[in-house]
Amino acid sequence: MSADIHSLVGAFALDAVDDLERAAVDRHLRECDACRIEVAELREAAARLADGAWSVPPPRLRENVLAAVATTRPPLWSLRSARAPVSSSFRISVYAMSAPSPRPRACARSRSRTSWLPRTWCCAISR
């Protein structure tokens, strides 16, 4: 079974497997350090194929992405708190409550930067 699953690592690295197979390979990788390294290397090699697909995007893509990013808060704090011990979550929630903005330097041009705050706040507190 395991050998069978391992034979899928190439297809897995190329995203050429279905959802069930991907889950099976993921499980297999959790149990096998050497396999994890092999897959990481195959993924790295596969990703280099993107170099061969270079195509200049329309300039509006940059404008649209940067505009979206300016109004999208990375769920950075909730991610960190998910991995961090309780004391860090507490510090994060205190920080979220007390700071007018978590990124003071970037806030000069921000109008709605704090709109994400209550959600993060709840998230941090709920952990």
Binding site: S7, G10, A11, L14, A16, E41, L42, A45, A46, L49
Partner: peptide
């Protein structure tokens, strides 16, 4: 089976 194997050894060679 051949396709799976060639995907894997192709990527190994590429790596």
């Amino acid at each position: 089976g051949t396709v799976k194997t060639r995907m894997r050894d192709g990527l190994i060679r590429l790596r």
